[in-house]
């Protein structure tokens, strides 16, 4: 179900990219008083409460999508996207992620970064849970079912 594509350990890109993610979260709170959670921002585009509530969400999403283009301008290549799974599995995974983040009120950015930074107990439980089931799922797919 998954092909194995080995990836190199890239601690400096990871730390630097992570710091930028953190900077964006801090700036959105400092300027506009909002949690930078991809789930919440996206859900609000689908169910806006007002026109102003809709426009800021579209603005930040457009900004996010510009990120890979700026990456390309500096590095000469788009960020690597290596997909080790089939299209049906991608669809199943996507639907599960959508259901999960909606019931769970957040994802990696909202719970894992902003929530943990606020020392929220809900976000700690959410983050430990989705990390654990992520590890368990890959273990089952790759080592029990045999990739």
């Amino acid at each position: 179900m998954q092909t194995i594509i080995e990836t190199a350990f890239t601690p400096f890109q990871a730390l630097g990219g992570g710091a930028l993610i953190g900077l964006a979260s801090v700036l959105l709170m400092a300027g506009y008083g909002r949690i930078l959670g991809a789930t919440g921002i996206m859900a609000g585009v689908l169910h806006p409460t007002s026109k102003a509530d809709w426009t800021w969400r579209v603005a930040i999403l457009l900004g996010m999508m510009t990120g890979p283009l700026v990456f390309w301008m500096f590095s000469g290549a788009m960020p690597a996207i290596q997909v080790p799974i089939s299209t049906p599995m991608m669809i199943i995974g996507g639907i599960l992620v959508g259901i999960g983040v909606t019931f769970g009120s957040g994802c990696t950015s909202g719970h894992g970064v902003c929530g943990l930074a606020r020392l929220s107990s809900r976000s700690l439980v959410a983050t430990l849970t989705f990390m654990a089931t992520g590890v368990a799922t890959v273990f089952i797919i790759r080592h029990i079912l045999g990739a």
Partner: peptide, 19 residues
């Protein structure tokens, strides 16, 4: 702010499923 987030995601490898 969205651009900074998207650039951070691009550099970090979070948008690479293999990683």
């Amino acid at each position: 702010i969205g651009l900074i987030f998207g650039l951070g995601i691009s550099i970090s490898g979070m948008s690479n499923p293999a990683k």
